[in-house]
């Protein structure tokens, strides 16, 4: 499943996409620890699979929560994207 967590507001689209098929092949779940803002958690989804998800409390504030990892100039690779061995995480902005 392609799970898009986030929102659109007047300033743009702020979605984190998680390809949960990747989570099914992953045993490490390094994305959870890699994020300095605790954006990710491993949950049991509606189909009883253990997958990564963006936690509820951050889903409407991603533009602010993720800003620490997205400096305006020379942004480094995102820790969550780097940590995922399945390349299952992407950001829309």
């Amino acid at each position: 499943m392609k799970a898009n967590y986030g929102y659109t507001d007047g300033s743009g689209d702020y979605y984190i996409t998680i390809e949960t098929e990747g989570c099914l092949k992953c045993t490490e779940h390094d994305c959870v620890d890699a994020c300095p803002q605790d954006v990710f958690a491993i949950i049991e989804d509606d189909y009883d699979d253990l997958v990564a998800a963006v936690v509820e409390e951050h889903r409407r504030s991603l533009a602010y929560v993720c800003s620490e990892c997205k400096p305006a100039s020379d942004p480094p690779p995102l820790p969550c994207v780097e940590a995922c061995p399945q390349n299952a995480i992407s950001h829309s902005w």
Binding site: M1, A3, N4, D9, Y15, R60
Partner: peptide, 17 residues
Amino acid sequence: HCDEKGKVTNFKMNDKC
């Protein structure tokens, strides 16, 4: 998006506005 069994394959929502 869903498959022929009604299982979700892709979703996007906007509940901020």
